[in-house]
Design a protein around this nucleic acid. Structure first.
Lengths: 154, 154
DNA sequence: GCTGTGATTGAGACTCGGTCTCATATATAC
DNA sequence: GTATATATGAGACCGAGTCTCAATCACAGC
């Protein structure tokens, strides 16, 4: 479902992550790389507890602390982004290798619909210029009711 | 700074809140109304702890539980919105009587710049039509570096 | 390849935002 | 005024995320 970019000339996420760590004077460790690999192994939104379960399921016993410590690194490196905060904890998705997209959230069934819309990026660019702001990213979240839930309401 | 609408023909926030509560079969209480009043007494973003301190400062001893219980009501009634989750807790602002605006967040100094841009709303409307979604609201948060922090980085 | 050392990990204690419980109080219907 | 269902307050509780510190490990320098 999620549109992918042409990967032929792209660095792998592992390369990107290693370079990011090196440039920060941090070390590449099996734990960090296993977390990265698992994050990119599925294409859905996830939260940290889910990720830990998936790692456990692989037979990898990486501590909760390490996973929590690694998440901000993945975000800072631009490989992953925070999507939304719900049910008391943050939800993430990997974004490296995917075109930027925004989220429609149904308040009825909690379904998330992803969509791409170039106009958003253009508006963003203009706003940055107006405000003399160097934009590094944005989060657009639209909420409401999906078609099915609109019908249920009636 | 924040653009206000023409209030001449508008219901007061208190009226809106009372109607909202009645329509939900809930009661209007002095605690709920004091919380509402305090929320509308200042024009900055706030978090629940701050709000509780402000209420205490007024000599009002409303329990944390009541304040936490009231916040979702204010949000659901459309008087208040969640702005962003930061430092481990949610931040709010009152929106009733103000034009819709979005937020630029500086990752350097954490400053928040509010701005209004009609193009965002138009894009949103179009997206809703495309996806057959009934849109009730949206949150656009752009992050990056303000002019001062850009200079500091060099 | 071995060594030294500073970064990293893991286990579990800890913090703190937010929720829940339940006895008491109170808003509203009659 | 009375009945009753809803709301409040105090504090216990929950759970996401952080911190501590001893043990381990990645990597630079030899």
């Amino acid at each position: 479902m999620r549109p992918s970019l042409n990967h032929s000339k792209m660095k792998s996420e592992l390369e990107v992550f290693r370079e990011f760590l090196e440039q920060k004077g941090m070390r590449s460790t099996p734990e960090r790389e296993a977390i990265l690999t698992e994050v990119f192994a599925h294409h859905d939104h996830f939260d940290v507890e889910e990720l830990i379960m998936r790692l456990r399921h692989q037979g990898l016993r990486i501590s909760r602390a390490s996973v929590y410590r690694t998440m901000p690194l993945l975000v800072e490196s631009g490989l992953v982004q925070e999507v939304f905060f719900e049910d008391g904890h943050m939800h993430y998705e990997h974004i490296y290798g995917h075109e930027h997209h925004c989220h429609l959230r149904c308040l009825g069934c909690r379904k998330i619909i992803e969509f791409r819309n170039g106009a958003v990026e253009e508006v963003e660019k203009r706003i940055g210029q107006d405000q003399q702001f160097e934009i590094t990213g944005h989060k657009l979240e639209i909420y409401g009711y999906c078609q099915a839930c609109q019908e249920k309401k009636d």
